[in-house]
Amino acid sequence: MKKRWLIWLLSIPAFMVIYLESFFTEGNALAYNSQAECIPKFIFTPKTVQYCSEVYPIDVFLIALKNPLSYICIILGFFIIFYPVFRLSKSLLYRPK
């Protein structure tokens, strides 16, 4: 039981490091690209923006999905959120009477 919580605790810094690597750096790299390079990558951001730094966060997320580390980040995020919920619901539902 304690091993599972230790894995959960260790997944938090792993999530943060991978998040910074995949999403945060991708957004920063996109902001410094030339306009000719970044505008074709936009899906939701209007093509009439003057600077690449005006990109919408959803476009940064979608562009970052090209990096395989971003999928690990998403899985770890779900694990961080839903594991305590799972443990709490399991302890509340299967409590002996």
Rank of each mutant, 00 (worst) to 15 (best):
R4L: 15
F15D: 00
V85F: 11
F44K: 14
S91W: 06
I58E: 12
R87C: 11
S70V: 10
F23V: 12
K41A: 09
Y56E: 14
R4S: 15
S11E: 02
I7S: 05
E37N: 02
F24Q: 12
Y51V: 01
K90P: 00
F15Q: 02
I80R: 03
E54I: 07
K90Y: 12
V85T: 12
N33E: 08
A36N: 03
K47Q: 12
P46A: 10
I80N: 11
S34R: 01
N28R: 13
L6G: 06
T48P: 01
P57F: 15
V85D: 02
W8A: 03
I81K: 05
A64E: 00
K3W: 15
E54V: 07
F61I: 14
K3D: 13
I80L: 13
L62F: 14
I12A: 10
I43D: 08
F61S: 08
I72D: 01
I72Q: 01
K97N: 11
P40N: 02
F82Y: 15
D59E: 12
R95L: 11
V85N: 04
A29H: 10
C73F: 05
I72G: 03
E21G: 01
Y51P: 00
P40E: 02
K47F: 07
Q35N: 04
A36L: 02
F86M: 10
I75K: 08
A36C: 00
F44N: 11
K41T: 04
A31R: 01
L6A: 13
I7L: 15
F42A: 05
I58Q: 14
L93V: 03
F44M: 10
K66S: 12
C52Y: 00
V17Q: 06
Q35C: 04
K47R: 14
V55N: 02
R4K: 15
I58L: 15
E26R: 11
V85I: 15
V85Y: 09
F15I: 02
V17K: 06
L76C: 04
F44S: 13
W8V: 05
F82D: 06
K66L: 08
L10A: 07
R95I: 09
P46Y: 07
I75T: 11
L10K: 04
P68L: 07
I12W: 10
S89K: 14
E54M: 14
S11M: 09
Y83A: 08
E26F: 07
L88I: 13
S22K: 00
G27V: 08
F82Q: 09
F82P: 06
M1N: 15
I80M: 11
G77Q: 06
V85C: 10
A14G: 04
Y56C: 09
Q50V: 05
L20W: 13
V85E: 03
T45Q: 08
F44R: 13
V55W: 00
L92F: 08
K41N: 07
P40M: 03
I58A: 13
Y32A: 05
E21R: 10
S89Y: 12
L92C: 09
F78Y: 15
D59M: 11
K2R: 15
F79V: 07
E54R: 09
A64N: 01
K47L: 12
I18E: 00
F23P: 00
I12E: 04
I7Q: 07
V49C: 01
I43T: 14
P57C: 14
I75Q: 02
F42V: 07
S89V: 14
F44A: 14
I58H: 10
C73Q: 10
P68R: 09
A29T: 05
K3P: 04
I63E: 01
P84F: 09
P40A: 03
L92Y: 09
S70K: 10
